[in-house]
């Protein structure tokens, strides 16, 4: 592989990794902080993409970002309401919303599985025009993503230190204690999922505009890919580290995941393997520590069995 090719690979990994990083940051809030595994992520990602694409096609590329975030927020509100006020188990609430969102997304696009944005202005083309004739022109897409991700990371660091953010973190860490501080965990869970899904929606919106196309299945498997990136990010900075470091680690995890994936494609791994790879990463990251704890036990069993055999002999 030549240096040029390697740099191009790195750039793609950066751009795609940063788009994914927004979804990963969203899971950082819901999964790591609030301790809710939000399985509506796939549908919400596609929802953000659909809404963003429609608004951009209607001629308002800038407006597409807040619109996609609002759509994500509404989706998060529904998921939260199901699990906090209507007795639906947390995992099921996510699955149900995810399924429902497929129809919602189809309805939004007018029963079209694809939308094409080749000839219309997007956030990325707008910024490219703004930067025309400056040295940054060639890197405008990367720049858009860097700025967006940086803003979201800054927001997250600020938000998680406010009283509301503390209450959301405490809800994931010890809900009893939240109640005894006179804060309603129903409220904190709802706010947490709304904010988190806003970023998932934003992520989908930027993904579609960067690819200049929307596809009804573009979010499928996103939750596992994002979870894999989140868990890779957790390797850099563990649970007890300061939040800004952990948030940065999560972004790093998303980029690294894309980089490794890009390299694997180079080495002739078929593209359809992405999802299996992310599944395996999630399983290793979650069950690894569990299995490690089992090893001493297994060794002792094995030793006991061997001694038993020796005694018999």
């Amino acid at each position: 592989m030549t240096l040029d090719k390697f740099l191009a690979l790195g750039q793609t990994a950066m751009e795609l990794g940063l788009v994914n990083a927004l979804t990963v940051l969203s899971l950082f809030l819901s999964y790591s902080m609030l301790n809710v595994c939000d399985l509506s992520t796939d549908g919400c990602f596609t929802l953000g993409a659909a809404v963003g694409a429609l608004v951009a096609i209607a001629g308002y590329p800038w407006l597409s970002l807040p619109a996609a975030m609002l759509a994500g927020m509404i989706s998060g509100f529904v998921t939260a309401t199901l699990q906090t006020r209507m007795g639906v188990q947390s995992l099921l609430a996510g699955i149900v919303v995810n399924t429902g969102l497929y129809s919602v997304n189809m309805a939004l696009t007018g029963n079209k599985a694809n939308l094409n944005m080749n000839k219309i202005p997007t956030i990325f083309t707008m910024v490219k025009n703004l930067l025309k004739d400056t040295p940054l022109a060639g890197q405008s897409a990367l720049l858009v993503m860097l700025v967006t991700v940086a803003l979201v990371v800054l927001f997250m660091c600020w938000f998680l230190k406010t009283k509301l953010g503390l209450a959301i973190r405490a809800t994931g860490s010890n809900a009893d204690m939240v109640r005894s501080s006179s804060i309603n965990p129903t409220f904190t869970t709802t706010v947490g999922l709304c904010v988190s899904n806003a970023f998932t929606g934003l992520s989908g919106c930027l993904m579609a505009q960067q690819a200049k196309s929307f596809d009804i299945n573009m979010g499928s498997g996103m939750v596992t890919v994002a979870l894999a990136s989140l868990l890779i990010g957790g390797v850099f900075f563990a649970k007890h580290r300061p939040i800004p470091l952990r948030a940065a680690g999560v972004v790093l995890g998303a980029i690294l995941f894309r980089l490794v994936y890009g390299l694997a494609l180079r080495l002739n791994m078929p593209a359809f393997m992405l999802k299996l790879v992310s599944s395996v990463i999630v399983v290793i990251a979650i069950s690894g520590p569990y299995l490690r704890r089992q090893v001493p036990l297994m060794i002792r069993r094995w030793q006991a069995a061997r001694e038993g055999r020796n005694a018999d002999a």
Binding site: L166, R169, G172, S173, V178
Partner: peptide, 14 residues
């Protein structure tokens, strides 16, 4: 009575 993943200061703030 307290949230283990948060600091003493953050617990007291709540």
């Amino acid at each position: 009575g307290s949230a283990p993943d948060m600091s003493i200061e953050e617990n007291l703030a709540l």
